[in-house]
Simulated assay, not measured.
Amino acid sequence: MPQELKIAMLGPTGVGKTSLLTAMYEQFENTIGKANLQLTPDLESSAILQERLGELKSLTDNFEPKGGIEGTENPQSFIFAFGKKGVKPSVQLHFQDFPGKYLDKKSPLENKKFVEELLHECVAVLIAIDAPALMEDDGKWHDAINRPQQITNFFQRTYQDMNSPRLVILAPVRCEKYLQDLTSANALLKSVKDKYAKLLDLFSSDALLPWVVSVVTPVQTIGTVIFKDIREIDGTPHFYFRKTGHDAEYSPKDSEQPLRYLLRFVLKLHLDQKNWGFFNPIRVWLGWDEHLKEAIRQTASGCKSTWGFTVIQGEKWLNIK
């Protein structure tokens, strides 16, 4: 039975959690898969991801105002077996997605409790950030769409008395406009640090600094669309995008980076050989031969650290040399 590691997908309605996970999976073979590794979804996850991938690819033909796909209606588990190609997997990655509307003020209390419990039990959290909302009009729509204070409050309630490492990935999505050159990429990174300053300050507190790894990994979710403008209708923003060319097709960029950082973190925990509760080293050791560890090392070496990518804190939990 593979060791299961749980990863929470965190973000409000319409931010793009499911789009990010779909792009991450779709690009695996062309990136991480070249290291003789495979990521195999279970039957349910495979069916959902195939439908989502079709929706994402169709966006280059017919944009919706938000430039994304419909959000999740119910909590969804995406379960992947991970390991060497052609070998029984030794690790299972369990990504837990939930409807962004669970964070709305009108959402029942049990929905918010569901999110809180999710953060308690997951070894890693992937926070999807709507980049245009973060960057445009000096972040006018950032609080309304990305809800950074509420997300910070969730971590304040759940990250207490910690005694085991956790990975938090801040992943701005729909970043095509903001990664055209080094200057704009650095501006994006600065905005993430500024607009999530309260969250990052929490992570850097005396109690959490030894345990929390935080990184920023911007993703070009479709790759061939650029943010165009915002049209405010009855006080509600509508985001519009344009294609980079008439024949431009779905071509995400850097969507595998969050997974590279996650695998780097997991390998470090394995090499550390301590029982962290969620990660039993004896069981995992039996299924991790030197070839698998070397393949993950090779994958981890592809983690980007410039052009808007950075490790904010906790690099010791990523050091696998």
Rank of each mutant, 00 (worst) to 15 (best):
L5W: 07
K6V: 04
A8N: 10
M9E: 02
L10T: 09
T18Y: 01
E26S: 05
N30T: 13
T31Q: 10
A35S: 13
Q38S: 06
E44M: 03
S45W: 00
Q50E: 09
L56F: 05
S58M: 13
N62A: 12
G71S: 11
T72H: 07
Q76N: 07
F78I: 03
F78H: 02
F98E: 01
G100D: 10
D104W: 05
S107R: 09
P108D: 09
P108Y: 06
P108V: 03
E110G: 01
K113N: 14
K113Y: 04
F114I: 11
E117P: 06
L118D: 07
L118K: 06
L119Y: 01
E121I: 11
C122G: 00
I129T: 04
A131Q: 01
A133F: 04
L134C: 04
K140C: 06
N153W: 06
F155G: 02
Y159F: 15
Y159E: 07
S164P: 07
P165W: 13
L167M: 09
I169W: 03
L170K: 08
K177P: 00
K177S: 08
K177R: 14
A187Y: 00
A187M: 04
S191V: 00
D194M: 05
L199T: 15
D201H: 13
S204N: 15
D206E: 15
D206V: 15
P210E: 13
G223I: 11
V225N: 08
D229H: 04
D229R: 08
I230T: 08
D234N: 12
G235Q: 04
H238N: 05
H238V: 01
F239R: 09
R242Y: 01
H246D: 08
A248Q: 01
A248N: 01
E256F: 09
E256K: 07
R264N: 12
L271R: 15
L271W: 08
Q273L: 09
N275W: 04
G277L: 00
N280Q: 13
I282Q: 14
R283Y: 02
V284C: 05
G287I: 02
H291N: 12
K293I: 04
I296K: 11
T299L: 08
G302M: 13
C303M: 14
K304F: 01
F309Q: 10
I312Q: 10
G314R: 14
L318Q: 12
K321W: 09
